[in-house]
């Protein structure tokens, strides 16, 4: 599989650690009802200029992993119980909070689905962007405001000069998301995590925001982790994909590979359930059942109760990551059958 895209993984010299590497991460939530195992051994890596899409449904652990990377997990109830998160080789989880804080904004930044509640309603947007420079760079307020204006122009906010003193509620959803992006890239982070950045937006606005993100990524050679449930958005922008289910990565692959040759029944099912033109009037393929409760993840492969390929071994043995192809692996005992397309 060759990636011809701009922003394809640059040839990283051997021995250089990836920009960001999550290794065997485990996160659990200790609630009154019991322990919910939200993330169970997630590993992925991202290099500069790369876009990694983390695909999953609600409860798959995709956002929790991102929160663990950023160090903004609500503790309690959330606890990282195992694993490491290495930024250029240094384990963020081993750092004291004071040191770790300096990484947020500076090296790692994140934008959220809900831009309105992510912005403080009592300060103007210009002031909030300027704060980033005041706090992290020790700039004066007026210099910060100048930088804020530059950033607002960079993210294509019309009439930015007049609007820099406006408050978040005076902007539309798409504009607010642009302001969030401006804040996130203010300090030139190397890694940007976008958690469902367009889910709350209309489809025409979604296209604008994704185009902006892509452009900024290319200009600044950022690593972009795009968390989403939308197979369409993934196909448009990602270089590689990690598919998550019940807190695990069930399949990892370069983007072209996964759409052409899914090797896990869950991925295959998701792709098959997309309404297609030539399927008009026919029943959609539907994955049966519902995602498991994170407090009672079934033994063996977590997907086995919903899986058409499942056999006894799937109920007993948690599948390892079987290599399927170049940079492509699947956590399914019967991945070969999936690839061959002998579904159900």
């Amino acid at each position: 599989m060759t990636l011809t895209e701009t922003g394809s993984p640059a040839a990283v010299p051997a021995g250089t650690p990836p920009l960001l590497e999550v290794d065997n991460l485990h996160v659990e939530f200790r609630t009154r009802e019991g322990v919910a195992k939200a993330v169970n051994g997630v590993s992925y890596a991202i290099n500069a200029g790369e876009t990694l899409a983390v695909l999953g449904e609600s409860g798959s652990g995709k956002s929790v992993t991102a929160q663990a990377i950023m160090g903004i997990l609500d503790t309690p109830p959330g606890f990282v119980t195992k694993g490491s998160i290495r930024y250029q080789g240094d384990d963020l989880l081993q750092m004291p909070e004071g040191v770790r804080r300096t990484y947020r904004g500076e090296h790692l930044a994140m934008i959220f689905q809900d831009a309105l509640s992510s912005l403080n309603p009592v300060f103007s947007v210009g002031y909030q962007i300027a704060e980033m420079f005041r706090v992290h760079r020790g700039m004066s307020r007026s210099d910060g405001m100048k930088k804020a204006l530059e950033l607002m122009e960079l993210v294509n906010i019309p009439a930015a000069r007049e609007r820099v003193k406006d408050y978040p509620h005076q902007f539309s959803g798409g504009m607010r998301q642009r302001i969030m992006i401006a804040m996130a890239i203010a300090l030139d982070p190397e890694v940007l995590i976008a958690d469902e950045p367009t889910t709350a937006l209309d489809v025409t606005v979604q296209a604008q925001i994704m185009a902006l993100l892509k452009e900024l990524q290319r200009e600044r050679d950022m690593g972009l982790i795009l968390i989403t449930h939308d197979l369409g958005v993934v196909a448009d922008v990602a270089d590689k994909i990690a598919v998550m289910y019940a807190g695990r990565i069930v399949e990892r692959a370069p983007v072209y590979d996964i759409y052409a040759r899914p090797a896990h029944p869950y991925t295959e099912g998701l792709l098959a359930s997309i309404p297609r033109v030539d399927m008009k009037g026919q029943e959609l393929f539907a994955i049966k059942g519902i995602p498991p409760s994170l407090m009672r993840i079934p033994p063996g492969c977590p997907f086995n109760p919903r899986c058409g390929y499942a056999r006894d071994i799937c109920r007993e043995q948690d599948p390892p990551n079987y290599p399927v192809g170049d940079a492509h692996d699947s956590a399914c005992h019967f991945w070969e059958e999936v690839v061959d397309g002998t579904r159900r």
Binding site: P158, S172, G173, G174, M175, V203, T204, V205, Q206, A207, Q208, M210, A211, D230, L231, G232, V233, V234, A235, D236, A238, V255, Y256, Y259, A260, L271, I274
Partner: peptide, 25 residues
């Protein structure tokens, strides 16, 4: 514009389709 903005779940279509990106809200 609406139809062109819908992302197609097929990466091979990425560069082939024309997208009309509407300005503003």
């Amino acid at each position: 514009a609406l139809l062109s903005a819908v992302p197609i779940p097929d990466p091979t279509q990425r560069d082939r389709k024309t997208q009309i990106v509407l300005q503003g809200d």
